[in-house]
Structures are given as structure tokens and as C-alpha cells.
Design a protein around this nucleic acid. Structure first.
Lengths: 216, 216
DNA sequence: GGGCTAAATGAGCGGCATTCATATTGTCTC
DNA sequence: GAGACAATATGAATGCCGCTCATTTAGCCC
């Protein structure tokens, strides 16, 4: 135990120990192993074999780190169907992939929802592809972003819901009999998934109708 | 400056200075005046004219305080249309009211999304009313909560979106021409509101269709 | 009136993000 | 090659924050 610490060099190393790439990867690893509460600058530095203050030569703040993380997570979202399949099918697979990615990163949701995308290249590329797909599908320019944001709102809300415990609506039957009954009527299912599926199907059906109505 | 401090008594006061009611009200005031980042236990104690440690005789943790806050905010949500109007009209006014309440309390969203409702009486009452309204509208028991959760997911996602800056999608036109074009096509509008309106109308239309289809 | 309990105070703890002085080394310039 | 400079590490220190604890005081009950 006493000799396991490699001698830490002071001063500039031959090759940089850190980079955006390495820091982001380490953060993802840390989160996957020990969860979001374990993501502290000290723990991250530890993971990288470096002093906490060294991080600040590469990342300006923890918030900045979360933005890197956001862009990294957005890379995992599959939007390849846009341009290859009809807009509604592409929107559906995009939404599913989007939800899955953020169900694993629910703590990022409130961050990404309010952060400008300009500094995140992969994120910009994703929206570009989605916007182009909707436009090509016949949506008028002034409604494309409304559709995107509406679907995205549903997806992010559903990602939060997916992070909730299964028994979140459990309640003593004498206080709220109807609630207890309808909650009881769905036991056994993957409830978050069922709600998402119902909502997504509903949204897509509504959007198809709306676009059709626009054409007349 | 030197004499303005009222002499703080040590030990038990004649009448309690604190209660759940008073603490919650003070927290709401603090948030409305100085925002969520200003909501610290120290600042809250200051607002109440009390030492920080005194709070812990009444509230077990800051998380507990946020749950009180949640129940308080949920009280503001109007679900009076359930039972008075058709289920879809009631769902719409509920969703609008819900979104407005949490647009002002976006930081609570990630907390409420994953917290069991059992300890929050007003919250339970709200869901009871919503569930009863949907059931009375003809929704089968095993789908009521899916509908509620789907709509709620959309509402909470939209509340987060409402807290975002207007220029969140602004991006240099050469990087993402289509995105820049469709973002530009909606300038001037209240964009978050427009996306919510489109999404809500879409969801409601889809739900009406789905319920109709169930009947056949 | 003696003991129990409720409810305040203030000191202090550990964890956190962040800053700063300092050290070391590679690179560029003359 | 020497000297200046920039990049990048270390480790000590700072300040905020949630929270705990020993202590004090006042009301209530027997």
C-alpha cells in the first residue's frame, strides 16, 4: 500500500496528461461506474491520476465539463434515419434513441435544456440533420423548430420519468381510491416505457394529421 | 449599523418562530426575489430571522424543503376543470396551468420527476382528480396513468424549455444552413410558447383519436 | 418545583468548486 | 547554446454550503 503511488512529477510533463477528450472519457467512465453524485472535480482528477487543480488548465469550470459531456452524449443519438426514411419514421427512431441516451444521463437534462448549442459541434450537427429531414418531409420553415422543440420536450420529460422509481405513484388506497386503482391496473409492466410509447405514438399521429391538414 | 440587530434569544422562545408553513413561504419569497441559486439554508434562515441550525428542528434536509416546495407549487396547478368539462378540455387547461407553475420553478423539475408523491398531500389530491376525470371520460383503467405520465412528461420538458434563453438555437449560418434558416423563420414569436402550443394541440388530437379507436 | 421536551444558538466539520503561487519543461529566438 | 516565454503540472488555501452537536432556555406535566 505504501509504495503504490507513482512519483508525481511537478511542473510541465513531457506530453500533456490531459485533454478535452481524456477528461470527457474519464467523466463518462466515472458516471457509469459510480453515478452522477460521484462526479466531483476531485474524483475526476483522481480517475485521471492528476491533481484537481490540473483540470482547470483544460476546462474552465464544472459547468463547462457538463457541456462537453452533453455533446458527447448527443453523439450517441442516432439520427441517421433522417434522409433515409420518411420524416415521421425518422422522427420516431430519433426520439427513441434520444430518450435512451438521456435516461442514462438524467442529471444532464436540466443543463442541456437551457444551454445554447453553438459551442457543441455534434449537437449542432444533430439539429441540422433533424431540421433538414423535417423540411424535406414537407414541414414549412416556420414550424420546423416548433416540432423539434415539442418532440424534444416530450423526450426529455420522458427521460426524467425513466429515472424515477417504479413506485413513485404508490399511495394508500383510502386517501385516493381512483388513483390507487389506476396505478394498480398497470403493475408488472415497464411503466415508464409504456407511457413513453403511448405518448410518442400519440404525438406522431397528431403530427401526421397536422401536416396533412397544412397541405389542404 | 451597530445597533440594528435585535437581541437574539437563546433557548426556547415563547412561541415557535418556525413551522413548515413559515419556512415554505419564506423559501418561495426568497426564490421569487433572488432566484433559485439564492436558496441556501443560510439565506433562508436569514430571511426568517433565525440561525441556520434552527431550521433543522423543523425540516430534516434541504431535499425535504424542496419537497415541501413542490407540494406548495402543485397547489397552484388548476385541475378544477376535471369533472366540470370534457376530459380533453380539462386535460388541456391542467397542462397549461401545470407548465406555467413549473416554468417559474424549473429547478424543481428534476426533483419532482423522481420523488414519490405519497408524502405530498396536495400532489396526491391533484392526481386523484386527474385520474378520476380521465376515467370518467372513458379511458380504461390500465391506460389512465400512461396518459397522465405522457402528458406530464411533455409538460415538464416544456417547462424546462420555457426557462431556456431565446437564442439557444442560434448558430453561425455557414455551419448549419438549414438549422439557421428554420431558426430564423420563427424570430419575433414567443418560441417556447409556440412549441408548447403546437405540441399540446398535437397530443390532445392524438389522444382523442386513440380513445375513439378504443371504442370501436 | 423537578423533570421532560421543544426549539432556539453558535461553534465547527467535511465536502465541494475554484484560485493562486510556484515549479518544471518544451519551444522559439537570437 | 542561452535566455525568454508559454504550457501544464503541484499543493496549499479560500469560501460557500449542507449539516451536526453541545448547550441553553422556556413552557408543560406530574
Amino acid at each position: 500500500m505504501t509504495s503504490s503511488e507513482r512519483p508525481r512529477r511537478r511542473g510541465r510533463p513531457t506530453a500533456p496528461l490531459l485533454s478535452q477528450e481524456k477528461i470527457t472519457r474519464a467523466a463518462v467512465e466515472l458516471i457509469e461506474i459510480r453515478g452522477y453524485t460521484a462526479l466531483t472535480m476531485a474524483a475526476l482528477a483522481r480517475q485521471l491520476g492528476v491533481a484537481p487543480s490540473a483540470l482547470y488548465n483544460h476546462v474552465s469550470s464544472k459547468r463547462q465539463l457538463l457541456l462537453w459531456l452533453q455533446d458527447h452524449v448527443n453523439q450517441e443519438i442516432d439520427c441517421s434515419d433522417f434522409g433515409a426514411r420518411p420524416w415521421d419514421a425518422a422522427l420516431e427512431s430519433w426520439a427513441r434513441s434520444y430518450r435512451e441516451a438521456y435516461a442514462r444521463h438524467a442529471l444532464l437534462v436540466p443543463v442541456i435544456a437551457v444551454t445554447p448549442i453553438a459551442g457543441s459541434p455534434h449537437t449542432v450537427a444533430m439539429y441540422e440533420k433533424v431540421a433538414a429531414g423535417l423540411r424535406a418531409g414537407g414541414w414549412p420553415d416556420d414550424q420546423v423548430m416548433d416540432v423539434v422543440v415539442a418532440v424534444e420536450s416530450f423526450v426529455l420529460g420522458s427521460a426524467l420519468d425513466a429515472a424515477a422509481p417504479d413506485d413513485i405513484f404508490d399511495v394508500p388506497g383510502d386517501q385516493a381510491p381512483v388513483l390507487a386503482a389506476v396505478v394498480g391496473a398497470r403493475v408488472g409492466r415497464d411503466t415508464a416505457r409504456a407511457a413513453f410509447d403511448l405518448g410518442l405514438a400519440t404525438v406522431l399521429a397528431g403530427l401526421r394529421d397536422r401536416l396533412k391538414a397544412l397541405g389542404t
